[in-house]
């Protein structure tokens, strides 16, 4: 059995009958209307479970209103970069 290539992205699992193939051209429009934000927009508020200084807690973006926030998404714990 070949060893999985190790990369920085977590390999996705697949479900029988589903496909990770690129979307056919006819579906490209869907991509164009996918959700997302851009500069000048209000940052969508969220509440999420979190780990913070030794404790399990909840973090809510709007709790930091009045402060600058650097919100950093990343692909996963234990990835290399």
């Amino acid at each position: 059995m070949a060893e999985e290539k190790v990369s920085c992205a977590v390999p996705a699992s697949t479900v029988e009958g589903s496909s990770n193939e690129p979307a056919p051209a006819a579906e490209v429009k869907k991509e164009a209307v996918r959700m997302g934000v851009t500069v000048g927009m209000k940052a969508p508020d969220f509440t999420a479970p979190a780990y913070y200084k030794g404790k399990f807690t909840t973090v809510k973006l709007s709790d930091f209103a009045g402060k600058w926030v650097s919100l950093c998404f990343y692909p996963g714990d234990f990835t290399f970069v």
Partner: peptide
């Protein structure tokens, strides 16, 4: 991929995204 890409958003005190 089931992951969040490396997105970094700078949000001002009014909650407005200034940089991404």
């Amino acid at each position: 991929q089931g992951v969040d890409f490396r997105g970094r958003f700078l949000i001002d005190p009014d909650g407005i995204i200034q940089g991404m």
